[in-house]
Computed example of a mutant assay.
Amino acid sequence: MSNKKVWFVTGASKGLGLSLVKKLLKEGYRVAATSRNLSDLSKAVDNHSDQFLPLAVNIKNEESVQEAIELTISTFGKIDVVVNNAGYGLIGGLEELTDQEARDNFEVNVFGSLNVIRKALPYLREQQSGHILNISSIGGFTGSFPGFGIYCATKFAVNGFSESLAEEVKPFGIKVTIVQPGYFRTSFLSEGSLVAPKHQIDAYQNVRASQNLHQNELDQQQAGDPDKAAEAMIEIVNAENPPVNLFLGEDAYNAANNKIAAVQSDLENWKELTTSTAIA
C-alpha cells in the first residue's frame, strides 16, 4: 500500500479536475474521483488499477456524497486531500437570469462543495490532518466581468466560507487553500460547462459581447496549461506552509493586483468619510 496521500476529487471527468486526477495517478497517488456520469469519468481517465476509484456522485445530494466518502475510506483507509472542483459557469446579466437559473448555479458551485466539506470533515478531524482545496476562480476575487454576476457571486461565496473554514479547522491540523485560476485551456467555456440564460435582453450589449468573447473567441485559446495547474496544486499540498489563497495564471495574478489597487485607492480617497462614523 502506497504511503502517499489519498485524494478525493469532485468534477473529475473534465477540466482542471481531469488534469489533476491524471497527474496524481501518474505520480502514484491513490485517487477517488467523482462525476455525475460514471462512464464519462472512466472513459476520460482510462485507468483500471487499484489506485483509482471512480465514483458516480450527485454532489447536490448529501446521501450520495456520504456514500462516496465512506466508500473511499473503506477502499483506501483514509482521505488526506479533498478537492472541491465540481461546478459550472453561468453567463447572463442579473436582469436576464431567472431565480431558478441563479439558484441552480449556487446549488452546485456553493452547496455542493459544502456537502462534501461537511461529510469529509469528521474523518479529517479524527485523524487530525488533511487539506481541503476549494477550486474557486479569479471571478471569486474580482467581479468586474459583465454577465458573470451570479457565477462570481458563487465563487465569492466559496472564497468567503473557505477563509472562515481555514480558521475553524486550524486547531485540528487541517489546511484549506482557495485555488483561484484565470483562463485555462479546458472545456470550461464549451457547451455544457458554460450556461447562458434562456431569455436574453438585447439591450445588454456589453453582456452579449462578453458572451460572444467567452463562447466563440476565448474557447481553446486560453493561455493557461491545465497540467501545470495540476502540478501547482500537488506542490502546495506537499508544502509545509501552504497558502490560503493560491492564484493560478499570469492573468489571475494581474487581475488580483488590479483589484487590490482599486480597493486601496477607494480606501485612501474616502478615508475621511470612512472614519467619520464613530459615535462622538
Rank of each mutant, 00 (worst) to 15 (best):
G224K: 00
E235I: 00
Q205K: 15
N241I: 06
P242Q: 04
D219R: 14
N206T: 12
A229D: 12
H214K: 07
P197Q: 00
V195K: 12
D219H: 13
Q220R: 14
Q200H: 07
K228S: 08
G192V: 04
P197H: 00
D219N: 15
K198S: 01
N238R: 12
P226I: 00
L189W: 10
I236K: 03
A203W: 09
H199M: 05
P226A: 01
L189F: 13
N212K: 15
A232M: 04
S190P: 03
Q220K: 15
L189N: 11
L194V: 01
D227R: 04
E231Y: 03
S210E: 08
V237W: 08
A229H: 07
Q215L: 15
Q222S: 09
S187M: 08
A239W: 10
Y204E: 04
P197L: 00
S210L: 02
N212P: 09
D225N: 13
A223P: 06
E191C: 03
M233T: 04
S210C: 06
E240D: 11
E240L: 06
A209Y: 13
S187P: 08
I201C: 02
A239C: 07
I234G: 01
D227A: 08
P197G: 00
K198G: 11
P226M: 01
Q222E: 14
N216G: 05
P243I: 10
P226F: 01
E217R: 12
I234T: 03
N241C: 04
A239N: 08
Q222Y: 05
R208K: 15
E231R: 04
K228G: 02
E231A: 11
A209T: 13
Y204I: 07
A239Q: 15
Q200R: 13
N241K: 13
D202K: 12
A232E: 11
H214D: 03
A229N: 06
S190T: 04
L213T: 08
Q220G: 10
L218A: 13
N206V: 11
K198P: 01
A232Y: 08
R208I: 10
A223D: 12
S193I: 00
Q221S: 14
L218S: 11
E191G: 03
L189K: 00
V195W: 08
I236P: 02
D202V: 09
A203Y: 11
P197N: 00
E191H: 07
R208Q: 14
D219V: 14
